Simulated scan of single mutants.
Amino acid sequence: MAVDEPATAVVALPGGGFRAVAGRTVLDVPPSSASPTASPSPSSASPSSASPSASPDAKRWSLPGVGSALAVPPSGDWTAVALPATGDVIILSPTGAVTRTIPTGVRPTALAADTSRIAVVDASESSLTVFDAATGARQEALRAGDGAVTVASGGGGRFVVMDARDGELLVFDSGPLILRQRHPVAGTPYGIAYDPTRRTVWVTVTQRNEVAGYDISGGTPREVARHAAVRLPVAVSVDPSSGALAVAGSAEGLVQRIVP
């Protein structure tokens, strides 16, 4: 499907469907309309075509500022959206209303959420900061490589960060926050998402217009899959029930569905 502005982040919803942020808009796509008009096969070498407009079933929520990222907890009860210009993370209700504002003290450019916490990446400082989702209290902070750009909840109290500058996948344990794994990813990696069912981290590779999957269940991440994607893929999300991926391409403002 097409969006009015380039999509910068997309997440899969626990009950199916996807949610994406594009400029001052959050696009909420229910399961019935989450697929584009065509999608690539697992072995396809070219990206899919997509519908020129959003499905009439999709909802658009307006934001008080330009959003850079969003995150949804496993319960799906709320959505966190990063507003870099104000340094805030806002919490949205299931209908898109702002219910809480968390002043982060940093410039939030990427987000992840688990059951009770929000992880915030500040790309300008290459830092990872963890906040209590219910109270907004700051918990822990740590430098994350030299060029942290995106983060995902990796299950079991972990957060996975992509360091685009050094081309590395960084896996942090929390409580205390500590770096446990790091793995090189060639081709200017950027977007990241975690599939808890298959214990796989998906990474967008912007120079190659691909998404690559890494198994992080062992001591060292191991590549297990790679697929062609839309041009300049900057964000990816995965439906843990089916393994289907949603990939946001910044070159043409498309959200693509891939079934591995």
Rank of each mutant, 00 (worst) to 15 (best):
M1C: 13
E5Q: 15
E5Y: 15
T8V: 13
T8G: 15
V10A: 07
V10E: 02
R19N: 11
A22Q: 06
D28I: 06
S32M: 12
A34Y: 05
S35P: 05
S35R: 14
T37W: 15
A45P: 10
S46D: 14
S46V: 14
P47C: 03
S48V: 02
S49C: 13
S49V: 14
D57V: 08
K59E: 13
P64T: 01
V66M: 11
G67T: 05
S68C: 03
L70F: 00
V72S: 10
P74Q: 06
G76M: 07
T79W: 11
T79Q: 12
A80Y: 10
V81G: 06
G87M: 08
G87N: 11
V89A: 07
V89T: 05
L92H: 05
L92C: 05
S93Y: 04
S93N: 07
T101I: 10
P103Y: 06
P103T: 08
G105D: 00
R107D: 11
P108L: 07
T109Q: 10
D114Q: 08
S116E: 15
I118R: 09
D122A: 11
A123E: 14
S127H: 04
T129Q: 02
T129K: 00
V130I: 15
A133W: 04
T135S: 12
G136R: 03
G136H: 04
L142M: 14
R143W: 12
A144F: 00
D146M: 14
S153K: 01
G154T: 00
R158Y: 00
F159K: 00
F159M: 04
P176Y: 12
L179G: 05
V185K: 10
P189A: 03
A193E: 01
P196V: 01
T200R: 10
W202V: 01
V203C: 09
T204G: 08
V205E: 10
R208N: 14
G213Y: 02
Y214N: 04
Y214R: 06
S217M: 07
G218S: 08
T220H: 13
P221F: 06
A228E: 04
R231F: 15
V236Y: 06
V236Q: 07
V238T: 03
S242L: 10
A244F: 10
A244Y: 09
A244I: 05
V247R: 05
E252A: 15
V255K: 07
V255N: 02
R257G: 07
R257T: 12
